[in-house]
Amino acid sequence: MKIVLNEWFKLPRLGKETFIKLMSIGVKYDKTKGFLVNEGTNLLSFSSVIKEALREEVEFYPKCAIDELVTPCDICAYREVCDRKEISSKCLCDECYNNRDIFTFYTTNLASKIE
């Protein structure tokens, strides 16, 4: 199962117990939008809860910290060393990553988010 971090997704019907477990590890829920996994979620626990309930492995895909595009983890040079369950939830998409001034973009982008 592919899950994009910081993006709402649907899950098949889960038992009440599983649902409570998900809430306790920081998964967000909205009746119409579904579930959301973000920076505050314990991704290790999330994977194991899903594995137990649905017998499925979860793969997480971070979004780009700048333009919110999904990061192409499958073709990333770091894919074997990157444990996506343990890193913070944003990365860089190819275009941003290859930009020569990326560090400046990255820092000013975040600074602009504080009022």
Partner: peptide, 17 residues
């Protein structure tokens, strides 16, 4: 405030900086 490990691509841009 739970902080996690840094993504490799972000580490790379910091090292280049």
């Amino acid at each position: 405030f739970r902080m996690k490990k840094i993504a490799p691509r972000l580490i790379e841009i910091y090292l280049r900086h």
